[in-house]
Measured scan of single mutants.
Amino acid sequence: MAAGGDHGSPDSYRSPLASRYASPEMCFVFSDRYKFRTWRQLWLWLAEAEQTLGLPITDEQIQEMKSNLENIDFKMAAEEEKRLRHDVMAHVHTFGHCCPKAAGIIHLGATSCYVGDNTDLIILRNALDLLLPKLARVISRLADFAKERASLPTLGFTHFQPAQLTTVGKRCCLWIQDLCMDLQNLKRVRDDLRFRGVKGTTGTQASFLQLFEGDDHKVEQLDKMVTEKAGFKRAFIITGQTYTRKVDIEVLSVLASLGASVHKICTDIRLLANLKEMEEPFEKQQIGSSAMPYKRNPMRSERCCSLARHLMTLVMDPLQTASVQWFERTLDDSANRRICLAEAFLTADTILNTLQNISEGLVVYPKVIERRIRQELPFMATENIIMAMVKAGGSRQDCHEKIRVLSQQAASVVKQEGGDNDLIERIQVDAYFSPIHSQLDHLLDPSSFTGRASQQVQRFLEEEVYPLLKPYESVMKVKAELCL
């Protein structure tokens, strides 16, 4: 049975990233139509530049190519590739079939990587351009969430054990800070992308030097003109047959890092959902379990974690691919890159769409948070109580021993009897502590235990987050809708 299948058929496997999760716009960027249309555009740009620099290419040939950029006979191309065992030459023939007058000058002087690699770089750039505003929107939604809850005390956790208090907004800023680093890295790697350009079979530009009869300047002009037509500021000066596969490492490393950030955020949300302090959106008709109707599973956060793990592992592909590119190139890269580049971007696209949807509907339960604080705060307040007693004339050592005994009794009630923490009640009825009984409410005010959390939130948002989001103001209103 021949390899390949009808990918629109229910009898043929289709990647869930495309069929179930990723956005239509990201799927289109990695589609065959987008790819092969870009090949034709690159052939047109090459012909236009070659004509401008004096090669015998007519206006009629150029116009014929322009008129057929979208006229792609995919069936013919597939048949040609089956016959020739070469995808680029299959599309040269297919393009030439609908451009008979231009057929002889299509791909003039070029090698397969002229269309293959340059198209990949265009796709990487455009895919990054799709991700950047999506990530900015996630940051914006979380920034709104953090600002609104900047002063809401909550129990902090280290080692997932109760620690000092923080605020809900401050905790959210930990998430935002990681995503801001990801946004900066995505922008950097996007701006650092260079075009492969017009380089020939081993990167020496020998074929173009021959076409222009040894004119170095025209060869350099050709490279520059096509690079500018493709919208790049610069091209690699040095290439082998391909652009260095280190570029793929750079791009997928940034995406993998984004995956790590999203995994951490969504894990926190899942843990908070278990504590009943916070939940992701839950639709009115949504079913959490087929057997347990009360369940409210954090399905979206779980999906993000599941896909983020996949995204983090994909960076190993370009690392290994770059390491086995012998001399000017081997074909070890080809099949692998067809999979890992598309999957990385479709996965990143999915987790950003999902995280935006989550961040637009996060639900906080202040009463649950308050109750958990009441359970733990008495123990945390013991040092403040000791200091207040010393100020009232008591002995630190005597007070410490009193607190120690009462704390152990209260802990026994919590752990052995399943009761509430009654340390404060014990202190309130103990005559030894009568000098500070009137101060206990103040000493137990949760806001006095959150330090500068709310001020940190305000400063972080104003100095770091809002300036970073400013270039994306025009796209901030787009909502994230999930079908599944």
Rank of each mutant, 00 (worst) to 15 (best):
E50Q: 07
M26A: 03
K66V: 10
I123W: 06
A308S: 12
M380W: 02
F282Y: 12
E473G: 11
T450S: 03
P446S: 07
D73G: 07
R33G: 08
A322P: 03
L319W: 09
V429S: 15
G5M: 15
A150S: 11
D182M: 04
L44M: 12
G200W: 00
F236L: 11
F449S: 04
V198W: 02
P10Q: 15
Q325E: 03
Q63R: 12
C173M: 04
M278P: 02
H263E: 03
D398N: 10
M292D: 07
T158G: 00
G104C: 14
L152F: 07
T239R: 01
A110G: 15
Q41K: 11
E383M: 02
A22W: 08
D216V: 07
R171P: 03
R270N: 02
G96H: 00
T450V: 10
E50L: 07
M225S: 10
V262L: 09
E473Y: 12
V414N: 07
D216E: 09
M225Q: 11
S289K: 07
D87G: 00
L307F: 14
F208N: 05
A322E: 10
I269A: 00
R14L: 15
R20E: 00
S15V: 15
E50W: 04
L135M: 14
R426T: 01
G240V: 02
E64D: 13
G418V: 05
Q205L: 05
G361V: 08
P293Q: 00
R14E: 15
Q439M: 14
G240S: 07
W39N: 06
E48Y: 02
V219E: 00
D445V: 10
T350H: 14
Q285C: 12
I339M: 10
C172S: 09
Y432L: 06
S9H: 15
L352V: 09
W175N: 03
T347G: 14
T350E: 15
E81N: 01
C99W: 00
C113Q: 11
Q210F: 03
W45L: 06
D178M: 01
N336Q: 06
E48Q: 09
A78S: 13
G214V: 05
L84R: 11
A480W: 15
T354K: 03
H400Q: 04
A388V: 04
E328Y: 01
D445M: 13
D6N: 14
G259W: 04
R196M: 15
G54T: 05
L124R: 04
D11A: 06
V390E: 07
P56A: 13
D430P: 02
S151H: 09
G200M: 03
P471W: 15
K66M: 11
I238V: 13
A150Q: 10
K479T: 14
Y466R: 12
T52F: 08
A150L: 07
N68K: 09
L55C: 11
V315I: 12
L193V: 08
L46V: 04
G4S: 14
P56H: 12
C340T: 09
R338T: 00
I269D: 01
Q455W: 13
I123C: 14
